[in-house]
Structure formats: C-alpha cells, structure tokens
Amino acid sequence: MQEITLIGILISTCLMVVAKSLLALIRGFRWQSFFLFLATFLIAWKEAQPSLYIIAGLLLVIKVVLIPQLLYKIIKKIKVGQGLGLFVNTQLSLFFVLLFAYLAWDFSSQLIVYGSHAQAGIIAIALFLVLVGFFLMVSRITALAQVVGLLVMENGLFLLASAVSGGMPFFVEIAIFFDVFVSVVIMGSFVYRINKFFTHIDVDKLSHLRG
C-alpha cells in the first residue's frame, strides 16, 4: 500500500517536471500533495498515532485544496500567459531528474545502514523531492514556479520527517503548515505586485534592477 503512494508521489513529481504550463504544474503539485496525504495517513494508521491523523487532515485541507486554489486564483487575477518559461527543456529536465533520483537513492542507501529497506526508499524519495523542488526553482522562469518549487521542497522535508521519526513534534508540524500557507499567501501577493509593476512575472528580468 505504502509503495503505491510513494510511486504516486514519484510520478506526480515527474509530471511536474515535464509540465509546460502553470496549470499543469499546479495540478501536478495537487496530485503530489494528495499522495503525500495518503502516505501520511498510512503511517498514522500503522503507528496508530492520533496526532498524525490530524496532520494528514491538515495536509489534505491546506496543500491539496487551499494552496492550489489560491494559486489558480492568482493566475486568473494577473492574467499571465500559461507558459512556465523553461531554462531547461522538458526532456533534459527529465534526464536531470533521473540523475537526482539516482543520487538520492545512493545517498539514502548509505545513510540508512541498519534501517529497513522501505524506510530507505522513503528517505530517497523525500530527498528526491527536495532536489526536484530546488531544480524547479532554478530552471523555471516565472515567479509562481518558484513558489511551487518551494512547496515541493517543503513536501519533501515533511515526508522525510514523518518517515524517519514518525513526524515532527505535533506543534512544530502545525506551525510549519501555517508557515507554508502564510508564505504562499505572501508570495502570491508579491507575485501580484511584481506583475503590476513590471507587467510580467519573469524573475529573470529582475536582474535589470541591478546597479
């Protein structure tokens, strides 16, 4: 069961990497978050931790529903084109992502010497998520893609935390959720502002501001 959710995460992540439009990217993120919710739910069930249930619920509400909704709204509001603006085209991105997958796997198998095989897999995927999130931030031009990349990284960290120690302390987890949510709101409004001032949201063009 857990393997399926993990594979779901993997696939949805790959979908995000090959996405060429913002809408597709956000959709990919929604799927990813959903599978993450499932994985968390399974862990909670297996370890019978009530706090993990709550966290899983929060995950569902915030990351699957609210954040994508918000992002959609922003896109609609600022009326940008659907294009993401790629520095690296999708084929090459996929190739890189495969490399990251190998790196993450290699790393986690070294890290967990005595741990179970499944746990090693979770850690590998978590690390993979962090790397891909970062990669998305680096290789996509629009500011919204950066927001999503950050969220992907956060997902990876969440997965890592819940895999290694059965979740972070409850209050920390809650705080992080709110943090993420608030940050998305703030970044959204920033993106809106940037668009208003510069009539585009290409972060690349911020370099013109340099003195």
Partner: peptide, 23 residues
C-alpha cells in the same frame, strides 16, 4: 549578475556536490 535563478543554482550546485561528496 543579479539573476535569482543563478543564485539558486549556486546553492543547488553546492548541495548536489555535497551529496556527491558524502556518497
């Protein structure tokens, strides 16, 4: 050069290198 992407790429490259180094 002032490009956020490049700065992110620096950090990213360092992380990748670190991971490879640890491996």
């Amino acid at each position: 050069p002032g490009s956020i992407h490049l700065y992110l790429a620096y950090i990213f490259a360092v992380i990748i290198l670190l991971i490879m180094f640890i491996n």
